[in-house]
Design a protein around this nucleic acid. Sequence first.
DNA 1: GGGCGGCTTACATGTACCTGACGATTGCTG
DNA 2: CAGCAATCGTCAGGTACATGTAAGCCGCCC
Lengths: 214, 214
Amino acid sequence: MAEALTAALLQRGLTVDHAASLDEAEAYMAAVDHAAILLDLGLPDGDGLAWLRRRRAGGETRPVLALTARGSVEARVRGLHDGADDYIVKPFDADELHARLLAVLRRQGGYLGVSLTCARLTFDVETRTVRVGETVLTLSTRETELLELLLRRAGNVVPKRVVEDQLFGAGSDQGSRNAVEVYVHRLRKRLDEAGTGARIETVRGVGYLLRSAA
Amino acid sequence: MAEALTAALLQRGLTVDHAASLDEAEAYMAAVDHAAILLDLGLPDGDGLAWLRRRRAGGETRPVLALTARGSVEARVRGLHDGADDYIVKPFDADELHARLLAVLRRQGGYLGVSLTCARLTFDVETRTVRVGETVLTLSTRETELLELLLRRAGNVVPKRVVEDQLFGAGSDQGSRNAVEVYVHRLRKRLDEAGTGARIETVRGVGYLLRSAA
DNA sequence: GGGCGGCTTACATGTACCTGACGATTGCTG
DNA sequence: CAGCAATCGTCAGGTACATGTAAGCCGCCC
């Protein structure tokens, strides 16, 4: 089921890390700042809701969608009470899950609200639209993800590792060669040609950094 | 309540500025680059969320944690939508607030790690980033290591022997010639050109010492 | 003035990064 | 379904930078 779900979400343009257990999930979550978490309550190694309660107590703020076969009202209430942002009963439609996921993300509105900015650049989190002043700048999916990532930490260095994890998922240990560098290059070119006042600087051996042109 | 909260956070190793009103807060915020903002929505001189929305529109990117007595889901959603990074309902535990604060800072990237300072220099241990005031100063790996070493003992002499061991490993019995001197030279040059108020002094026959310019 | 410790510049090597191009895949369109 | 365009990830060649060593120079102290 997880594989089918992963495929379905990938197909819809999202990046997915799949963990088969709570332990594995914690490992991923420590490494990557995921936008949301899908929590199957029927996991082998522990009670999903108890786990969620612990994470919430520990300061976890990422939105969580609980997946379960138990559809009773009481179960649903308990799930929401324990910190789930939405509660989805199996069997469910991939489209429905996708929609609910987007709804939660929209509600969360990103960490900063609706729009991120740097120089003449603005990025609308809701519509995932990039603007330079008034005119819309069209970027590919990956380019947009990269830009958003840099914008969220504008002025701060984003380690290359983090970029890799965010763009390609934490499971890309060996897979990617120099993809990050290529996308940085492409994004730089577009930002430059579009005359945004924003610039991506390289911090050798560490990562990249978005800022207004000097 | 604010006093108790201030005390609790101070006790946990954070530095806190307390403002009793939005006006006072703006004064502080103009003067200091705080790592995060705790916003009580029950302030006397205006709607906290409206204020937050205005600040976000004006380019405010610092993370904001909203504190409130209104615990309804709608209020929470509205808060997050208006640009809050987290939303905490009173009454809350000081530990929980602390944990959530750290989580937001970690997610924001940067500020969390203990930062070492000397004059206008700051070094973030977590991201290994060097700053002069606001601007990031890029150093090579070795230069960064050396600077960290000197910063950790700022004001005290660091024996040359110790520097060698730290930079090149204890197994560099005879191997390195005058590498330390070279790196001290390079670091001096960079610190000088960047206008940090920090200076590396030489203690003949012993080692080096970092301090604010005399 | 000779020896020592430290300063400074220069250089050879490796590494990290940039960048143009290519095959593969996907999505769209006629 | 064929054909086209866009996007994706990889590679190869080039470039810029970091690194450690060497060599000449300066100032200190006897």
